Simulated scan of single mutants.
Amino acid sequence: MLTVKTPTENKDSKEKKVPKKFITKKTREKLDGWLFVAPFAISAIVFFIGPLIAAFILSFKEYGLLDQTSFLGAKSVGFDNYIRVFNDEVFGKALTNTFTYSLCVVPLQLVIALLLAMVVDSKIKAKAFFRAAYYIPTLTSAVAVSLIFLFIFKVDGVLNNFLNIFGIAPRNWFTEPKFALAAIVLMAVWSSVGMYMIIFLSGLQEIPQTLYEAAEIDGASKLQRFFKITLPLIKPTIFFNLVVSVIGTLQMFDQAYIISKGVGGPLNSTMTMVLYLYNKAFKEGEMGYASAIAFVIFAILFTLTIIQKRLFKEEEAN
């Protein structure tokens, strides 16, 4: 007896013959995503997360840079390294110097940067020239800047020759404890203010000009427009610059290293937290103690950032 296959049966048989894909489209998309992320994830684990965990373990051990054994097999000292940090007089001096430096540099940086940003944002001629002129020092390497200021502040340098006109006796600014840190402050402000100026400039350009025009029609002075319009609307920019500036100043290393030739002198007057960390780790080889210093610095930076964030949030809420 003959059987006739209906079109439906033929269709079903064809569908059954089509092999199922081993990897579905959704799985393939996930796999592609992981493959794209993999280079970053691997580099982060190898160069950031791994060393971070290793340094944290190391901070609880007594380990030297030239020790033959692995740091995992080094002698454990518990919290002794951290206790030693808080009892270390040189670290205390470095902490004082760093905070003094930060308290001087941060306000000067932000105020000067904001003023310069307002100047280059105003209706003046040759705006592009002034923007480039103010920003160029930021592109100069810290080594070059330090060498320039060593030349300016030396005994027979430009500054002393200028002060000599007014009868002021010459002095070697970087070798006197009273003036060494102040000279580094001036150097840091000059070399970094351009970067913060550019960030402030971007914030100023986001403010609608109609607000200023309306305030001017209402009879508001330039000072009133600045405090009532400009400052409130660039608060996020101020917060960003403040956090970056504080973190940058508390991590200051290169200028102090070059000016003091790595010793933080004279009389530890230019010793900073990071310079002390470097000396302990790579000059004296105390990797365990240096790791403890690193995590104390991290805790200080993290705490200050959280405090700044909360203060700005409270001001915005009010």
Rank of each mutant, 00 (worst) to 15 (best):
F86V: 02
K154A: 04
A292F: 00
Q209Y: 05
I238C: 11
F129S: 02
I124K: 00
A44D: 01
G92W: 01
L277I: 05
L114Y: 01
F99H: 07
A182W: 08
S269H: 09
Y289S: 05
W190F: 03
Y276W: 04
E213A: 04
R310S: 10
K16L: 14
L108T: 07
V120I: 09
V296I: 13
E216R: 13
F200K: 08
L223T: 14
A142M: 14
F162A: 15
M252L: 09
G78S: 06
Y212F: 15
K178Q: 15
V18P: 05
V143E: 07
V120D: 04
F162E: 06
P170F: 05
L116C: 12
K93N: 13
T3S: 11
K309I: 10
N318V: 12
I83L: 07
A188E: 13
Y278F: 13
E176G: 00
I136G: 04
Q68C: 03
N87S: 12
L65M: 15
L275G: 06
N97I: 07
M273D: 10
A132K: 00
L35E: 04
N10T: 11
F179I: 09
F91P: 00
Y212G: 09
Q109H: 07
A214E: 14
K313P: 02
K127F: 01
F239E: 13
M187H: 04
K313H: 09
P7Q: 09
L150M: 15
L52S: 15
V145W: 03
T270S: 11
K222A: 12
T96G: 13
L139S: 10
K228W: 03
I57M: 13
F312C: 05
S122V: 02
F298P: 00
P266F: 03
F129C: 02
L204C: 08
A94H: 06
N81E: 02
K123V: 05
R84Y: 01
E62M: 03
I165L: 13
M252Y: 07
E176N: 14
K14T: 12
T210P: 06
A169Y: 07
K222P: 13
Y289L: 02
P236K: 05
V155F: 13
I306R: 10
I152C: 08
I307W: 02
K14C: 07
M252C: 03
P39C: 05
E213Y: 01
L186P: 01
V111Y: 00
T6G: 12
R131V: 00
V105W: 01
K93R: 15
